[in-house]
Amino acid sequence: MERISLKKSNLFKVATVFLPLALIPLFDHNPYHLDLFTTVGIYALLAMGLNVVVGFAGLLNLGYAAFFAIGAYTYALLSLHWHCPFWLGLPIAGLVSMFFGFLIGMPSIRVRGDYLAITTLGFGEIVRIAFNNLDAWTGGPNGLLGIARPKLWVPSFEGGLHFETWSFSVNPAPYGYLVLGLVAGTACLLLRLSDSKFGRALVAIREDELAASCMGIPTLKVKLYAFGVSSFIAGIAGCVFAAKQTIITPDSFDFVLSVLILAMVVLGGLGNLWGAVLGAAVLGTLPELLREFADYRMLVFGLIMILMMIFRPQGILGGQLIQRELDVRHKESADGAS
């Protein structure tokens, strides 16, 4: 019985946050605002996905943009060569990205801490350079263009029942709803996940890997699954991104993006799902609000990361667990000194 009420409360939380957002496109018809709305949604997906690995499991992944790229290129190639519909491409992009997540994760998770960060960074760069150099498949630095937009089949009753295809166009509103739906769905799933055995195992590993493995948690397996879930979400986000832009180039998936997403997670609060969404909203809209200071954007990101780590390492909404973990070292050193 308790599980059902928990499920209800998660759905309720997600609905209260995202339903009001669904009203925005009804009142605000400014395409520029709606486009920003969609972009922030894609960032939110990425931030939530990265949060699974960095926040829950405590594994710093600095090559996250690579999984976003793999999702985007998967859908682009499927669409260009086989005219694969978007709705089929979406799960395939997620799965292909997840496959690469496992592939890259398997050797990487064996190395610990800061070395893992550098390993993932190395893999991320290899993927980007590969997309840049494999001209025959990926169009090299020019990228791929003419990627199909999503289509819907709308029932029509004129002259008997048949379906008419209705394609997304340059109008950003449908993308806004699509992304909002995906963000809400992902949030629901991740909230369920964080309350599950798997989620608890991840947090246990983050808090103390040795103790976790002594408790019988298969740490390598759990960490690998976290990598898989996280890259699946990035793949989904990449697919939506490719369908929205209709053109993708390797430049869109560089190290700066990986760090930007990391900055969102850090700003919102490591390990906190709502924090990731909030971080995406803040860092996604901030540059648009400060248009005239566009050149200072990355400078400000750098500064935010430094200041957050020094003054509020748990982030704006940081959870209690994280706070406890960040205090551990202080306690240890205090004990050592006494």
Binding site: D114, V259, A263, I306, I310, L326
Partner: peptide, 23 residues
């Protein structure tokens, strides 16, 4: 200020410093 913090905290800070200097 981060001398006694977890390693990842300092690593994230150093990425921030890197971005700051570059820009």
């Amino acid at each position: 200020p981060l001398r006694n913090s977890p390693r990842l905290t300092a690593l994230i800070t150093s990425i921030g410093v890197s971005f700051f200097l570059q820009n």
